[in-house]
Amino acid sequence: MSDSTEKPPIIRFQGLEKAFGDLKVLQGIDIDIPEGQCVSIIGPSGSGKSTLLRVLMTLEEPTGGRVEVEGESLYTMKRNGEEVPASRAHISRIRRKICMVFQHFNLFPHMKVIRNVTEAPIHVLGLSKREARERAESYLEMVGLSDKLNAYPAQLSGGQKQRVAIARALAMRPKIMLFDEITSALDPELVGGVLDLLREIKESGDMTMLIVTHEMKFARDSSDRVLFFDEGVIREDSDPKRIFTNPEHDRTRQFLDTILSEQA
């Protein structure tokens, strides 16, 4: 269906719906995200922002609609010309292109920092121990934790834990990175450092990034595009400059007024 000369968008949501019982969290999301874009997703809590990332990461199954990654459907596959629910192998193959960083880090507490970062590259990507270690060391250096290789997560501060979690995700070299409120659980003085790291990642590669955040300054200054979520739909999809100076919707304006006065 897409134009043959143009590459399909790296992520495409079509009529995506997700309900928990009677509660409709996503009510028809249609959006294309081209490769390499850095998208901030903002909106009140409970508006469905995190759910969108979790559906893409296959942590939640959608109750309706379609998710495509590089033109391939994530939750269905073709068999004998028919669309059937995707097999585990199909999901796993597409999921390899995606990785996620969580609000509560979710580091593996029984592994030292270095093993947290090498475990998946060795056992999922099939890297040799030496390759994985070199890769892990370079990413841990990038996040400024070269001196913590042999610490256990419990010995780190919140900010350090989140840096390890970012290094762990980067070491998978995904095409798409999802960041789910990664600064929300941090002490205020540690937020800046992690956001700087996000900027650095954005500058250093062509990874597609979806960032659910409450940091408006970051959304405005450092992303290519801002989505405003409200009650399970995308109310506004716009250029970061315009949405902060001249939002189209009253709801957007209200939300921004409230949150900006809090963050001022």
Binding site: L59, R95, I98, H123, V124
Partner: peptide, 16 residues
């Protein structure tokens, strides 16, 4: 639950 989610995000197989 976060431990399962992190393991899925890193694409470990169910057995792993």
């Amino acid at each position: 639950k976060g431990q399962y989610e992190a393991a899925i995000a890193l694409n470990f197989t169910p057995l792993q």
